[in-house]
């Protein structure tokens, strides 16, 4: 085993999660592979419905039953395949070694229990703390995530907190047992812009304090640019490009990634004119084509693209793309930001 492989804390291999609905099988996540290194922040980006949240939920096996099912793949963590864990082991893992923060803090906390009670719960379940010890630890956590007057707030109910404060509570719950991995599923989407920044700063700061890795799922490229080390771009349930944040922003090699970049508002480039949306709509996940899933919206499609789905290929070191013309895009042979 090489040193870089040792550095991997989580490895997802060929993960497929399908939903069996009345209308057919929705391939929400189809053959997704990626890895997470120790101490890094991995961003998963893509538009709504591209399978990023399902990917995250699959890691902790929180896919809504009985509709959803993880049909294939391996998720290797600490030498074990999480998909093969028994219920008991899974419970020991969740909220302990791997924990998760959700999108909407307004609905993610139980309205009928105090925040203190909910924070203490993770401590009691995993660390087997006594109630007063858990209370002490819980107070420390609330202080750590920056809740003012945390002693008084400990006994408040979620409805007495604002959205940003609730998300801080969620973070306190998530880091309670110093997890190795923190999965944040659009942690700032439901928050005000100023609060978003605070929450992200907090997460970043805690990552260094607790020496954990973060998977951050977002559709906000700004968040990715600032906090992620590596980025996986997903489209229609598949990863289309996976590389360092610099590569993704400066040398995007997939037409979808390029399209995403062009549709972002930027302050630093004056003469860009109008935002350029990507033409068309993503395909239905029930009936995916055999060829490249982006072909229908891609104006650079060539004859080769009519063939099989392009596999994720390493076009330079640590830069993976699933496009036959990826190298051309990366090297700028095809004008990246043309009209």
């Amino acid at each position: 085993m090489t040193e870089t492989e040792n550095n991997k804390i989580l490895e997802v291999k060929n993960l497929s999660t399908y939903f069996y609905t009345d209308d057919g099988v929705v391939k929400a996540v189809d053959d997704v592979s990626f890895d997470l290194k120790k101490g890094e922040t991995l961003g998963i980006v893509g538009e709504t419905g591209c399978g990023k949240s399902v990917t995250a939920l699959s890691i902790l096996r929180l896919i809504p039953q009985p509709l959803g099912r993880i049909v294939a793949g391996e998720i290797i963590f600490e030498g074990r395949d999480l998909l093969k864990l028994g219920q008991k082991d899974l419970q020991n893992l969740r909220g302990n070694k791997i924990s998760m923060i959700f999108q909407d803090p307004m609905t993610s906390l139980n309205p009928v229990y105090t925040v203190g009670n909910q924070v203490m719960e993770s401590l009691i379940v995993h660390r087997k703390l006594k109630k007063d010890e858990a209370r002490r630890e819980g107070l420390k956590l609330l202080e750590m995530v920056g809740i003012p007057e945390f002693k008084r707030r400990f006994n408040n109910y979620p409805h007495e907190f604002s959205g940003g404060m609730r998300q801080r509570v969620m973070i306190a719950m998530a880091i309670a047992n110093s997890p190795s991995i923190l999965i944040a599923d659009e942690p700032t989407t439901a928050l005000d812009v100023t609060v978003q920044a605070q929450i992200l700063e907090l997460m970043d700061e805690l990552k260094y304090k607790t020496n954990s890795s973060i998977i951050i799922i977002t559709h906000d490229l700004g968040v990715v640019a600032k906090y992620a080390n590596r980025v996986m771009v997903m489209y229609a349930g598949k990863p289309v490009e996976f590389s360092s944040v610099d590569n993704i922003f400066y040398k995007p090699a997939h037409p979808y990634t390029i399209g995403l970049m062009k549709s972002v508002t930027r302050l630093d480039e004056e003469k860009r004119g109008k935002l350029k949306p990507i033409e068309g709509l993503p395909p239905s996940l029930i009936d995916l084509p055999k060829f490249c899933i982006f072909r229908a919206r891609c104006k650079y499609a060539c004859d080769e693209c009519k063939g099989e789905y392009p596999p994720l290929k390493e076009i330079e070191k640590d830069h993976f793309v699933s496009c036959y013309r990826g190298k051309e895009f990366m090297e700028g042979i095809i004008e990246r930001f043309d009209n």
Partner: peptide
């Protein structure tokens, strides 16, 4: 079907 139930499961309960 509420989010806080998913949270509870995610906590390892």
């Amino acid at each position: 079907s509420n989010d806080y139930i998913t949270t509870a499961y995610a906590k390892g309960l």
